[in-house]
């Protein structure tokens, strides 16, 4: 695909999450390694409950207070160790150092502020000085960059006036406004129509490629992995069962779980085998 440097953008070793519940301690993530090079998109794939979302939420410290995140290392290039950062200071990291795109764009947008205000609030929270006018110009540029047809009108409106695809574009624009070097997207296109999905993924991967950023893309869709990622991490029951280049893992899966997962996706041109 494209040239990747050997330079690391994110290196996570032995990440584990434990959550206190009334029924005792549960361990949704048990020792996950994750390496992301500069300019690379790494996919995390698995079925619901495999711990893929919990892994990145743990990394971003977005889990509720009854959970504990530990790791031998969680080094973000140009910043430092993520887990050594106190939770309250993580807000400075999210947005500025790491852009986060969640599955439900409407959950990420404030329903009672105009879109323009949300760009302003974001910049105000991270930079000390930005005028409303400057912020508006930046926002306009960002929305144009994510392929929104009439950015001025979107800026002057509210989240509920947008379609799912449009809202996700706005969230991506917000996530990249402060030029974070790493993007983390958690099922960014689940629930969107196929054509919109392809557009959004083209957009995100373009944003990553353009400026030598990196991305972690969490998904349950093997098609997304195969078409947009360079490397993939397959998770099952809170652990990584297989990882490697997409060409290797998707074409010749080694682990039985990965093999089963890939076998359960209809291939183009194939008919359903009933005898199974």
């Amino acid at each position: 695909m494209n040239a990747q440097s050997e330079e690391l953008a994110l290196e996570v070793r032995n990440l584990a999450v434990s959550i206190k519940t009334p029924h005792g301690l549960v361990h949704p993530v048990k020792g996950v390694d994750l390496t992301v090079h500069k300019g690379e998109i790494v996919g995390i794939v698995g079925e619901s409950g495999c711990g893929k979302s919990t892994t990145i939420k743990g990394l971003l410290r977005l889990l509720p207070a009854n959970s504990t995140v530990t790791a031998d290392k969680a080094q973000l290039a140009g910043y430092g160790d993520l887990l050594a950062t106190p939770v309250r200071r993580m807000r400075e990291v999210r947005g500025a150092k790491i852009g986060f795109v969640a599955q439900n764009p409407f959950g990420s947008l404030n329903p009672i502020y105009k879109i323009e205000r949300q760009f302003y609030e974001l910049q105000k929270a991270h930079k000390t000085k930005v005028s409303r006018k400057e912020s508006g110009e930046i926002a306009l540029r960002m929305l144009d960059g994510v392929g929104i047809v009439n950015p001025a009108r979107v800026l002057d409106g509210y989240a509920h006036q947008l379609s799912g695809g449009m809202a996700q574009r706005v969230v991506i624009a917000l996530a990249t406004t402060l030029s974070p070097q790493l993007l983390i997207a958690d099922e960014p296109t689940t629930g969107l129509d196929a054509t919109v999905q392809a557009q959004i993924l083209d957009l995100i991967s373009g944003l990553v490629r353009q400026e030598g950023r990196s991305m972690v893309l969490v998904t349950h869709d093997l098609g997304v992995i195969a078409q947009y990622c360079q490397r993939v991490v397959v998770m099952y029951d809170g652990q990584v069962v297989e990882h490697g280049s997409v060409m290797d893992v998707m074409v010749e899966p080694q682990h039985p779980y990965t093999q089963r997962l890939i076998a359960s996706v209809p291939k183009p041109g194939e008919k359903l085998d009933v005898s199974r």
């Binding site: 196929a194 999905q197 098609g223 195969a226 996706v265």
Partner: peptide, 13 residues
Amino acid sequence: ARLSPDPREPHAY
């Protein structure tokens, strides 16, 4: 817009 799970078949979107 279909995304093939086979990386050898890039989509034609």
